[in-house]
Structure formats: structure tokens, C-alpha cells
Amino acid sequence: MPFGGVRDIYRGGNRLSPAQTPERLRVVLAKLGLDGHDRGLKVVARILRDSGMEVIFLGLRQTTSSIVAAVEQEDADAVGLSMHNAGHLTLGPKMVRALDEAGLDVPVVIGGIIPPEDERQLLDAGVAAVLGPGASATEVVESVRSAIVASRG
């Protein structure tokens, strides 16, 4: 049996492990448009952080082009949008198109106040997942993860 493992020498956590570090999923979180309800977005940011992801938090009043630029520069793996303005049927598909046009194969997950009957329409428009009000932390993390996995084929 070996004496001491990797842990012994890395105790204190201030050294990089030998080979490549594990992949960290990076997610851009934003509110698209004018609506200012950011409680949900902030809670989701913390949920994703606590599940080990890196959240690039854009916060309020983003446009599709500011989100596209962030995805490119941050090499993000997914985009999470929160919508409480009843504009999701316009803005959700617009986001998907903007990413598409920029050649970014990054899944879009939408949460917020989305009536169940609009969910189908959003999914048909290319949105990867829709999280309704009251989605649990596990559901949030799982839907983001599986959207990323699915997008990579």
C-alpha cells in the first residue's frame, strides 16, 4: 500500500493537480429585455455555482447580441434566460436564432413565468429546456447539464 496519496502533498488546496483539471461547465445567465425580476436568476446562479459550475452572470437588461458576445468570449457551454415579462414567445426564439446565426451550438434553457402551453412552442423553436416556476435545485442543475450533453451529441 502506498504511503500518502496525492492529497498529502496537495493539502491546503493551493496546487494544480498534475494533468488537466476537470472540465468546468460554464453557463451564461441573463435577463433578456427590460423585465427586472432577478430573484430567480440570482437563486439559479447560486444553485449552479454550488453544483460546481462557473456562472457568467450578466444580470439585467441584456440583448441577444450582448449575450452572443459573452458566449463567444467566455466560451460558455449554455445560456440560461429568465423571463417574467410574457415576452418569452418573442424573445426565446430570437435568442436561439441569434446564437444560430453566430454559429454557436450552445443550448438555451429558459426559466421564469412560462405557461405550460407555451413550453411546446419554445421547445419547437429550438429552446433546449423550459423550467417552470417552482423547479427544484436538482431539476435546474439536471436540465442545464443534460442540455449541454445533448448539444454535444
Partner: peptide
């Protein structure tokens, strides 16, 4: 913002 601002798309008269 006015209704014809680019910011307003999809949100005019909604909430």
C-alpha cells in the same frame, strides 16, 4: 422606452 425602441420588442402592452 417608447414602443418603437428596439428594447421594447415583445414587451409592448404585455405586463
Amino acid at each position: 422606452h417608447d414602443s418603437d425602441s428596439e428594447w421594447s420588442e415583445g414587451e409592448v402592452g404585455r405586463a
